[in-house]
Design a protein around this nucleic acid. Sequence first.
RNA 1: GCGGAUAUGGCGUAAUUGGUAGCCGCGCCAGACUUAGGAUCUGGUGUUGAAAGACGUGUAGGUUCGAGUCCUAUUAUCCGCACCA
Length: 917
Amino acid sequence: MEYNFKEIEGKWQAAWREQGIYRVEVDPSKPKFYVLDMFPYPSGAGLHVGHPLGYIASDIYTRYKRLCGFNVLHPMGYDAFGLPAEQYAIQTGQHPAVTTEENIARYRSQMDKIGFSYDWNREVRTCDPEYYKWTQWAFLKMFDSYYCNTADKALPISDLVARFEKSGTEGVDAACTEPMSFTAAEWAEMNEAEREAVLQNYRLAFRADTMVNWCPALGTVLANDEVKDGLSERGGHPVEQRRMKQWLLRVTAYAQRLLEGLDKLEWSESLKEIQRNWIGRSTGAQMFFPIKGSDRKLEIFTTRADTVFGVTFMVLAPEHEWALELATPEQRAAVEEYIEQTKKRSERERIAETKRVTSVFTGAYACNPFNGKEIPIYLSDYVLAGYGTGAIMAVPAHDSRDWAFARHFGLDIIPVVEGGDVEVESYDAKSGKLINSEFLTGLDVKEAIERMLDEVEVRGIGARKVNYRLRDAIFSRQRYWGEPFPVYYKDDVAYPLSMEELPLCLPAVKDFGPTEQGEPPLARVEDWKYDGYPLELSTMPGFAGSSAYYLRYMDPHNSEALVSPEANQYWRNVDLYVGGIEHATGHLIYSRFWNKFLFDLGYVCEEEPFKKLVNQGMIQGRSNFVYRVVGTNKFVSLGLRDNYDTQEIHVDVNIVRNDVLDLDAFRAWRPEFKDAEFILEDDKYICGWAVEKMSKSMYNVVNPDYIVERYGADTLRMYEMFLGPLEQSKPWDTNGIDGVHKFLRRVWNRFYDRDGNLLVNDEKPTAAELKTLHKTIKKVREDIENFSYNTSVSAFMICLNELGDCSKREILEPLVVLLAPFTPHLSEELWHALGNESSVCTASYPECNPDYLVESSFEYPVSVNGKLRFKKTLPVGISKEEIEAAVLADEMAQKYTGGNTPKKVIVVPGKIINIVI
RNA sequence: GCGGAUAUGGCGUAAUUGGUAGCCGCGCCAGACUUAGGAUCUGGUGUUGAAAGACGUGUAGGUUCGAGUCCUAUUAUCCGCACCA
């Protein structure tokens, strides 16, 4: 009987659905395990063969853990709000809710065919009001909180108000946008709007006038992680810097905890490193430089306090708030012009022209607080407004950017650290002895930095300071398809809706583009008002809905809370998270922030959301090419194309097999190739190939539906794992799939003969067969734990090769369970064929019995001077001395040592014997 | 520029973690069967050599009885960050 995967898979998928076999509930009698996939954005293109890679890996792990006796939470949902659905809506007028619904249905049907063990009862969709109610809830909680640096956690804003009432800002150490200082009396004097303005400075969700990434083409602002090289990540449109009033999340308040938390996580070093870089902690000093002829002091940040005697000028960012004020009357016009010019340049231009030095002199001077030397102050856009204080002390001798600047404008370059030749280039290294530096002279750089930091604090010039590269997350999007803000305005003062009024539902609109006035689409909704007051017009960004979805899965139908304490305390956090590395600086930062915030407030019991994280690699496309002889309809095979003048054309990979073109299929592929002629080699047309991104335009998209149709879900699952290490990117190549499919057929053939008779018998297995089985159990278990699925597939193949035509029940039954995480449908069918009534999903995973692995003898490779010479079989368990004596007595050893007594004999028990002469 | 990763047959990969390099699969070669298929089965397949053997894990050194694995330098590819003071 043939292995009829189609029938088997259809049958069991239906049965599992009917039985609700993957439903899970809180069950304190069993240990829990939480396996999560990064939920997909349901795009219109559907899934290609690369998408399920991570889902298959996590499904295997889920099934494995379940068979090992864990109560496994393994849910799936959709990240359904976002730009593409909306862009599509603008073009076609179709409501995003409609297209999203269609796309979800398609995704679901594609996923269902692969046999995943999700508990669909727990599905979440970020665009569902019952879901985004809790996104809005979290936002309001953030609005209602501030970060107390003393307690090192988020606290209710009412606490802060109480402190202001009692003693003003005295003794308050809180994360804020601008440092503030006022007394209790002053606070008491303030009106409501003024107080709110103060509180906005502290709230964790707050509104501020800041520089933002504005993308004119998308008509919205974007967060830093959504911008790459000055272009929007979605669509690749130019992005410019603009000052706008926006909602932000005070992620920076958590910078230190986000950094420290990484150490405890089982994430790949590279991913942790990406997050560390993104957070970008640097330690140094804040210092104040008095301005000449004024009592103001310019604040700067530096990591190289030791080089202060080498300062020859200062630079402000053109956006610095003092930029214009500092300008002397003679320089004012030039300064104004420079600021204007900088504003006009897009982020992209600034990046492209990083080599070009542009600047203007303000006419003002500062004094070096250590030696009183006068230092000219310049503006230049190489200093960024958003980092540090937007102002620097320039040390051209030891900073390459300052050096270039000084050279360009003919400023002094004073070396203060020995080691380089500052005439040629700056010496940036943090090593060497200090020179020309008064009390620092003679010290090593590292000592000098410490000494200087002390001195700065003693003299009251500044203080030690830690700076982060991480910015607060811009949280508004001037778009339609996102969560509405539960906020309304009275006289431009923001007021939150009450929790009872959530969800604030997204109203229907007809036109999804921005209004003529450039306002967000919600401006078209006439009654977009609360109690007569206007509601916020922008919506939340994509990362809002994905920041806490893993918590919602724990208790998805709860209308009283995001997650009940009972559910949260049982499921705690995600034990294994599988997804792409592309979320390193976005979702994975925001989620950690969001979770820490909810942790501070006591809503969740774990501080980190994702304990272990595995990044599956990307599956690229493997494109095929044909070579048309220019000006003809003749196609020349790869090996012969050098003899012709050819043009390379992408050809559909689905009509190529092992790089051999199916000629008839090619003629039928497109009308212009109907009469194609071929120049063959060895009667075949060999195609060229290349690894490219999997995309329609390259004709290299492979649809999982097609593979399932042709080979079955179990083959697809196993082959995707066999392709290579999970974390590595690799091209999809359908060619190799036969090997895996053949393996499954061979498993089938252990059970049934050609006529459909069951071959399984109750004969006792031999020692060799048991050894093979248990070796495989050991290997497969280890490999699953290590996510080394490709080698576990190999182990299965080796196992079957070694077993030959063995059809003994005692061997096959455990093997079927062992295979179940990989090939659930086939295993289920065979499990029932063996007479089991219950599902294979409820079996227990086979355990390795080491007794079967014990060897009675071992074949030792014997090397002489490191070179392998012969092999000697010896019983296991004899002493090193006995082995040595046995080997030395061996005829072969005599031959290779020439009868000489060896200098040394090295015996590695169970491994190798080396004779050194 | 800074940081991270990778490099092994024609291809995807493996190597008990310092111990017989190339398991498993694809492809290729040969054979068997055959209702001639892109089926199935068996054997072979790193290079070189008639063979014994020699050579062989990006390159060059080093440590070691022994190195794909450890150390130093170097090259290439990929990824992240990037006027971050």
